[in-house]
């Protein structure tokens, strides 16, 4: 009998105006599309927020986050992903703080949230690797 483990939900803070917001978005997509496509799924935070609306809402996102493991990727101290998941579903299983990773790689910090450039992409890859490690840990523990 094949046992199918549920995917890990990834929630990016997606913050506006901040390079950290862009980095969380890019890193999330790198994880879900390239690094761990079979063990992760994106939870779109805006859709998640609009979740209790019956028609075309993100109710399924909220249900998923209630029942399954989630990782939030936070760009600033507001911790919007973490707050939203806890408010609408259940506490996030893990949280990655982008600012901490940025401190370790100051040479790659981009200037513009609109265009993070090649260095920003390198930083997003590094963040994505950190997230992927956490994904593996949580996925194996199921």
């Amino acid at each position: 009998m094949i046992s199918v483990k549920p995917k890990i939900g990834i929630i990016a803070c997606s913050g506006e105006k901040l390079v950290e917001g862009t980095l969380t978005r890019v890193a999330t997509r790198i994880v879900v599309e390239k690094l761990r496509p079979f063990t992760t799924t994106i939870i779109c935070q805006p859709l998640f927020m609009a979740g209790d609306i019956n028609h075309k809402g993100g109710g399924s996102e909220r249900e998923f986050a209630k029942k399954h493991k989630t990782i939030t990727i936070e760009g600033c101290d507001e911790e919007c992903g973490k707050v939203a998941v806890e408010r609408y579903s259940a506490p996030a299983t893990a949280t990655i703080y982008v600012k901490e990773i940025m401190k370790q790689h100051p040479e790659f910090i981009p200037n513009s949230p609109q265009d993070i450039g090649d260095d920003g992409m390198k930083l997003a890859e590094i963040i994505a690797q950190e997230v992927a490690k956490k994904v593996d840990e949580l996925y194996k523990s199921q």
């Binding site: 803070c13 913050g15 506006e16 105006k17 917001g21 935070q45 927020m49 919007c80």
Partner: peptide, 11 residues
């Protein structure tokens, strides 16, 4: 001004 939807929702 740009309103960040996630921050607006949270705070």
């Amino acid at each position: 001004d740009l309103i960040c939807p996630v921050l607006y929702n949270t705070n």
